[in-house]
Design a protein around this nucleic acid. Structure first.
Lengths: 227, 227
DNA sequence: AGCTACTGGATAGTGGCAGTATCTTGTTGT
DNA sequence: ACAACAAGATACTGCCACTATCCAGTAGCT
């Protein structure tokens, strides 16, 4: 199929298709002449994946390239899952605070907290893992905002995260073909994160609503269990 | 304190402070003369919050303005929580697909799936809620990618999301002062989402690692339980 | 062969965003 | 009086994700 038809079938403008090609997100069509190339179903598929990653997953073009690169290099299941996980952007940017001294101190404290958590849960992750780094940064900032997790709270969240991850893995692994598996894994890892976030928001919304209804009788606006 | 000192203490450049003021994120200092204003501790505090929302929470300036507006208008606990929840950007953008006919069909199917989920969980949320809308969009796209959730899977995620939300609410509500509460709620809602995402990634990483270790003996690269 | 519509590829331009720099006018402190 | 700084307004910068234009080179019809 020609580029115009690919465009028509996917709803992506021709100029954007060319752009994705230039950016290395989409392989070139099979050239049949100097100014003519043939595109196949796999191109349409890839285009759908690109759109899903950028719009649903909120990934940048660069991040999408990373992720798709990991998909394309996926030879074994495990390798693919790991590569994809590392290719996804970490959702925290460090910010460079003011003080020098206390900054280092906060960094140490946060790092210790992360290490302790990993040890308690028996999660194995290299200290250089971007996720460990990001978590350390986030905890450091929360500490600076005076909104640390209470003891055990972080572990409670982590336990739930583990359950979620178990569901993710089950969802990602039930395929035989390594290529299909890699693509599925991308979707599960990259696109299902916002879905869970939405579920969490809905759950929050519901609970807030319930609390409002309960408190309607004129009780105190916020009661808080013993802590 | 003068703007230069505010800058020094928070690590935010003077030009950026002015920019935030123009954008309505930061109240003006108390003017003591035509070209002189006095800033207080609350400005430093607000600046820290802004930086946390934009760098850790990944919010845009516009979204940050929304959220801070909700904080400032927070009179009651419940109102604040709801307003903040709605002020946060929804992590899915709709994308406008190709076909007209089947598009509407997919939309209907996804909408029904969401409604069914909400009914099953007895979650109360208006159909117009941005979270409901976003979830519908996401499910529609997943369907198009042939990566729908298996029956019951979505509910399993939702159950975990509910537990997470319960932790969130507990974390947000343990304060008396409504202003402090609103600020805490912002942090819990906006900044802890990436933290959970990181925990999820770490959990995924650990489980992938374990699976790799198990399969090392030379077994088949991917086995999948009976399903 | 001639003509038009279309193709792939290269290059340049657009609009939005998040700052950053500059300029003007006014104030402070010595 | 005067250098140093302050405030606000305006303009500029760099990045990103496209989008438009231009240039040969076919394809297919007549």
């Amino acid at each position: 199929m020609k580029i115009s038809e690919l465009s028509r079938r996917t709803g992506v403008p021709v100029a954007s298709i060319k752009y994705f090609r230039r950016q290395g997100l989409l392989p070139a069509g099979r050239a049949t002449a100097a100014t003519l190339a043939e595109y196949g179903e796999e191109h349409a598929e890839r285009l759908r994946l690109i759109k899903a990653l950028t719009t649903l997953g909120g990934l940048s073009i660069a991040a999408t390239r990373e992720v798709l690169g990991a998909v394309d290099q996926a030879r074994t299941t495990e390798g693919a899952l790991g590569a994809i996980s590392y290719a996804l952007p970490v959702p925290v940017a460090s910010q460079g605070g003011a003080g020098e001294e206390e900054e280092a101190e906060a960094e140490r404290a946060a790092g210790a907290e992360v290490a302790e958590l990993l040890a308690a849960l028996d999660w194995r992750a290299p200290a250089a893992s971007p996720h460990v780094q990001g978590l350390t940064t986030a905890l450091k900032e929360l500490r600076r905002l005076d909104a640390q997790y209470a003891p055990g709270e972080l572990a409670a969240y982590a336990g739930l995260a583990e359950s979620v991850a178990r569901l993710d893995l089950a969802r990602a692994e039930c395929l035989d073909d390594p290529v299909a598996l890699a693509e599925r894994a991308v979707i599960v890892f990259a696109i299902c994160a916002p879905v869970f976030e939405l579920l969490r928001r809905l759950a929050q919304e519901d609970q807030v609503r319930r609390r409002l209804a309960d408190g309607d009788a004129g009780g105190p606006p916020s009661e808080c269990g013993p802590h």
